[in-house]
Amino acid sequence: MEKKINIRRNLWIALLLMMASGALFLFYNLGSSWEFALRLRGFKVVAILVVAGCVAFSSVAFQTLTNNRILTPSIMGFESLYLLIQTVIVYLYSDQTYRVLSSIDNFLVSVAGMIGFSFLLYLLIYKKGKDNLYLLLLVGIILGTLFSSLSSFMQLLIDPNDFFIVQGKMFATFNKINNKLLWPSLVVMTATLLIGFRMTRYLDVLALGRDQAINLGLDYNRVVKIFLVIIAVLVSVSTALVGPITFLGLLVTNLTYELFRTHKHHLLIAACIMVSATALLIGQFLMERVFNLSIPLSAIINMVGGFYFIYLLLRVKKL
């Protein structure tokens, strides 16, 4: 019983930390035109919360489905497809890109493309009657590689000046989020999370492995498919909103597992959302106000996450 209190306490601490970093981010050094600054920062905070929610839920659920801690759903080809779509758009319209296609259109095209892709992928695997999740992943990644090489080819054809438009999309950033995209993303994320949280108890059982899950009366294939759809929606929304942050999921999930040793997924995911939001808020705060760096936060997260991943692979005795 003592353990439960501990987790509760840690959850409260995480919540407080998140609130504190949010407040710090919002109110630190507001300056004279505080109304304007607050509004701008407010948008960023909302964007960070959206991304935190998407990344945390999708990564934890994905790792439970695949029974490991070192994969994240974003490697499944979503991000390379997103970049391919962006590259094609820039290739087609070059420097007219922003005029021809509003950011809302772009967002819709990207989300629709990514979700459509995931459905095709699931259909392909399940039609063939091979309900092997690892196979699904590998096929997704290979398709992702195909998309990346197509984009790198097209990027060769793009004028270097226009290339900067693509490069801007290659890294997630909270600095130039379009406010119009924020609210639809927030709504989609909240709705998906509401559905997702009602199903977290299935994740508890799925964590025991496929055979046990079936034994305990889960309609395994159906539940897995539902989670895959949820994951696809969340990853797409987050990617289309701010861009790819491949390894954020890896970093925050493992941090969460270390801090909250529980098998109860509703707690785990809630904790992970708070950990992600705190990490992003503090990271963004440091980048923006303290170091004044121009490097996108995601490039740093990917690097830190990358080193952490290699450390994880080498440290763990058995994977």
Partner: peptide, 9 residues
């Protein structure tokens, strides 16, 4: 978890 089929969680 053995009781999951009856009462879920």
């Amino acid at each position: 978890f053995g009781r999951f089929p009856y009462s879920q969680d």
